[in-house]
Simulated scan of single mutants.
Amino acid sequence: MTAFARREAQGEWGTLTCELRSVNHRYLDLSLRLPEDLRAMEGALRERLQARLGRGKIDCGLRYAPPASGAASLTVDHSLVQGLLEACEQIEGLMGASAQFNALEVLRWPGVVREPARDLAPLHAAALRLAEETIGEFVRNRQGEGERLAALLRQRAEAVGVLVVRVRGRRQDLIAALRDKFRARLAELGVEAPDPGRLEQELALVAQRLDVDEELDRLDSHLTELESVLGRQEPIGRRLDFLMQEFNREANTLGSKSADIETTQAAVELKVLIEQMREQDQNIE
Rank of each mutant, 00 (worst) to 15 (best):
E188V: 10
F4E: 09
G93R: 13
D29R: 10
M95W: 07
F138K: 02
A184W: 05
T253Y: 02
R33F: 06
E250R: 04
Q208L: 12
L178G: 09
G14D: 01
L32P: 08
A99F: 14
P66Y: 02
A87M: 00
G93Q: 15
R118F: 03
F242A: 01
A176F: 02
L152S: 11
R63H: 08
I274C: 03
R218C: 00
L20D: 02
A207E: 11
S31Y: 09
P194V: 07
D281N: 15
L62A: 10
R148N: 07
Q10S: 14
L178V: 15
R232K: 12
A5P: 02
P196A: 09
E147V: 10
R238H: 05
P194T: 12
R6Q: 05
G56H: 11
G231N: 01
L123K: 08
R142M: 06
Q280R: 00
G111H: 04
V113C: 02
P35G: 03
E215Q: 10
R48D: 04
A72V: 15
A157G: 03
G93D: 12
V165L: 14
L28G: 03
A204V: 10
L34M: 02
R48F: 08
I135C: 01
K57M: 03
S98Q: 10
E214T: 05
Q143L: 13
L85A: 10
P66A: 07
G11C: 06
A151T: 08
A87F: 04
D260K: 05
D211F: 09
L85W: 05
Y27L: 00
V164Q: 10
R129E: 15
A99P: 14
L219F: 10
Q82A: 09
E285V: 10
A131P: 01
L62S: 03
E246R: 01
R140I: 15
D180H: 07
E227Q: 14
Q201I: 12
A159R: 13
E250H: 00
A65M: 03
E89S: 09
R185Q: 08
V160M: 13
D281Q: 14
L123P: 03
T17M: 15
E202L: 05
G190D: 07
L32Q: 02
Q280D: 07
L149I: 05
L62C: 07
A176N: 08
D211V: 11
V164T: 11
M277K: 04
L53G: 04
V162Q: 14
G61S: 15
D195E: 09
F182A: 13
E132R: 08
A157S: 15
R238P: 14
F101I: 00
L186C: 01
D29K: 04
A126V: 11
A150R: 00
A157P: 01
E19H: 07
K181G: 12
G70R: 15
L273F: 00
L45H: 08
F242V: 02
R168T: 07
N283V: 05
L20A: 09
R6G: 04
A187F: 03
L205C: 06
L174F: 15
R114E: 11
L80E: 01
C88A: 14
L226W: 05
E89H: 11
L107G: 11
M1P: 14
R185P: 14
L189A: 14
E188C: 02
T17V: 12
G231H: 04
L163A: 00
A103D: 13
H222G: 03
N252S: 09
E234Y: 09
A40N: 05
V167I: 10
L210A: 15
A68G: 06
R166N: 13
E285H: 07
